[in-house]
Design a protein around this nucleic acid. Sequence first.
DNA 1: CCATTATGGTCAGTCTGTCTGACTAGGTTG
DNA 2: CAACCTAGTCAGACAGACTGACCATAATGG
Lengths: 142, 142
Amino acid sequence: MPDLHPGLLMSIAARHVEMRVMRALHEAGHELTLAQGRLMAGIDGEGTRLTDLAARAQITKQSAGFLVDQVERLGYVERVPDPTDARARLVRLAPRGREAQREARHVERQVRHEWEQHLGQERMAALQDALTSLREITDPWA
Amino acid sequence: MPDLHPGLLMSIAARHVEMRVMRALHEAGHELTLAQGRLMAGIDGEGTRLTDLAARAQITKQSAGFLVDQVERLGYVERVPDPTDARARLVRLAPRGREAQREARHVERQVRHEWEQHLGQERMAALQDALTSLREITDPWA
DNA sequence: CCATTATGGTCAGTCTGTCTGACTAGGTTG
DNA sequence: CAACCTAGTCAGACAGACTGACCATAATGG
């Protein structure tokens, strides 16, 4: 059996994480889709502009606006005026959104722990190191 | 700067590979979409059943059928009867499909090489090792 | 040996997420 | 202050995914 391409192996594992997070959110009563989740993952504490959210998720601002409309209607985020720019508004997590975020982070920690159990500390550290380094040449956004 | 979650880092790198492959295919005159490419990646030498393709790409057989229709019309694959089961047909790469496959594999080798240059042989081997091991607990299809 | 169930695939209809292009309102700058 | 830039929306299109219903063929167990 020849080595599968690392990119493919990464897709498998990354997909697994997403699936675990989405499933947990669903079980906790949240009705978020993957696209909505990816978008919300880009919101930081003080709130984030639509344009920045779009860039982080690598989608157009139209798509981002569409998704923000949805999660706003569901009560996960709110749009507040940006005090520093009258054109802009900040998308901020509402209480329900922070709940979902907590849940997501919990599952992520759990997965990380499972991986460390499986690989052992040393290999896990090597993985984290290699991935972090690889980001320098693969992240279009950094 | 705290460590980003390995799953997220994997998404970034995996996406980079896909982007590189799609761009190269496009430059070589192939008009394949990402979804079509992912589907075709699941076709093996003797041909593969629609149902298996769907399972490998983790989509429904209806979606897979839709995509096969498209790439068949574009001349990348052909459907031939399955000699062992009259209900089934095998989806097989046509010459144009094999060309695209060669191109894709070429880019994948190139990316692998770039990564090895960046990480060094040892860290690259560690990465491959960790990812392969991780597959045991993250691949729903193995 | 046939009735039942399982499997491979299609048809019909729907929905989500994405895009491009055109536009408005509000900043920024020479 | 004129010209340009930037944040966001509106309108329209389309790809790709889903569910549910269905048909044809295989496989299985009384």
